[in-house]
Amino acid sequence: MNFQATLEPPGDVNDLGQDGQGGGTLKKALGLRADWARLPGRSVEVWLHGEYVACGVVDQAAEDGSVLWIAAEGISTRRIFDKSSGYQIWV
């Protein structure tokens, strides 16, 4: 997972490696997810208006996909994010 904050969310295309020609190991880049209800147990990144907010494992999600909770880790507490506020989830 990309833990480096950038000004735009990660793309949803394959990473071709350092040479740009696919000679290295292909790895799937992060993709935007609209159906939050299907994400419990998945590692995700949270973005808001093009800025990285958080990452972690989805602990729980509303059945209608309107909100999800990222599990507490270390000193971080469990956090809730709601889709209507503009948050985006990338897997």
Rank of each mutant, 00 (worst) to 15 (best):
G41R: 11
D35R: 11
S76R: 15
A29K: 08
R33P: 01
H49T: 04
A62E: 14
H49L: 06
A61Y: 06
G74W: 03
R42N: 10
G74I: 05
S66P: 09
C55I: 02
L68W: 03
Q60Y: 11
W47M: 05
Y52E: 03
E73V: 07
L39M: 15
G31A: 14
S66G: 15
A54Q: 14
W36L: 05
K27S: 10
W69V: 02
A37E: 14
H49P: 00
L30G: 13
G41D: 07
V44F: 01
S76A: 14
Q60R: 14
E51T: 09
D64R: 04
V46C: 12
K28M: 00
V44G: 04
I70C: 01
P40F: 02
G74L: 06
L39W: 08
V57F: 06
K28S: 02
L39K: 10
H49S: 12
V58S: 07
V67H: 11
D59P: 04
S66T: 13
V53C: 14
D64V: 02
D59T: 02
A37V: 03
A34L: 06
A62M: 11
A54D: 15
A29P: 01
Y52V: 02
V46E: 10
W69I: 01
A71P: 04
K28T: 01
R33N: 04
G65C: 07
G41K: 10
E63L: 13
E45P: 00
G31P: 00
A54S: 15
E51F: 08
A62L: 13
R33E: 08
L32W: 04
W69Q: 10
V67C: 06
L48H: 15
E73F: 13
E63W: 08
V58N: 09
L68S: 02
A62C: 05
L68E: 02
A72R: 13
G65K: 09
S76N: 14
D59E: 15
L39Q: 14
V67Y: 12
G31F: 03
E73C: 09
G41M: 08
R38H: 01
R38S: 13
K28I: 00
G50Y: 11
R42S: 08
D64T: 04
D35M: 01
P40V: 01
V46S: 12
V67F: 12
L68R: 03
I75Q: 14
E73L: 10
V57Q: 11
L39R: 09
A34H: 07
A71F: 04
R42E: 12
G74S: 06
A62K: 12
R33F: 00
W47D: 05
W47A: 04
A29T: 03
S76G: 08
V67L: 06
A34F: 03
A29L: 04
S66R: 13
L68M: 08
H49N: 14
H49G: 07
G31W: 02
V53D: 12
Q60D: 12
L30Q: 12
L39N: 09
G56S: 10
V58R: 09
E51Y: 09
R42F: 02
W69H: 11
V58A: 07
A61F: 05
D59W: 08
V57R: 13
K27R: 12
R38F: 01
V53Q: 15
V44D: 03
G65I: 06
E45Q: 14
C55P: 00
R38A: 13
E63A: 15
A71L: 05
G31Y: 02
I70M: 06
V58L: 07
K27P: 00
D35T: 06
C55T: 10
D59G: 10
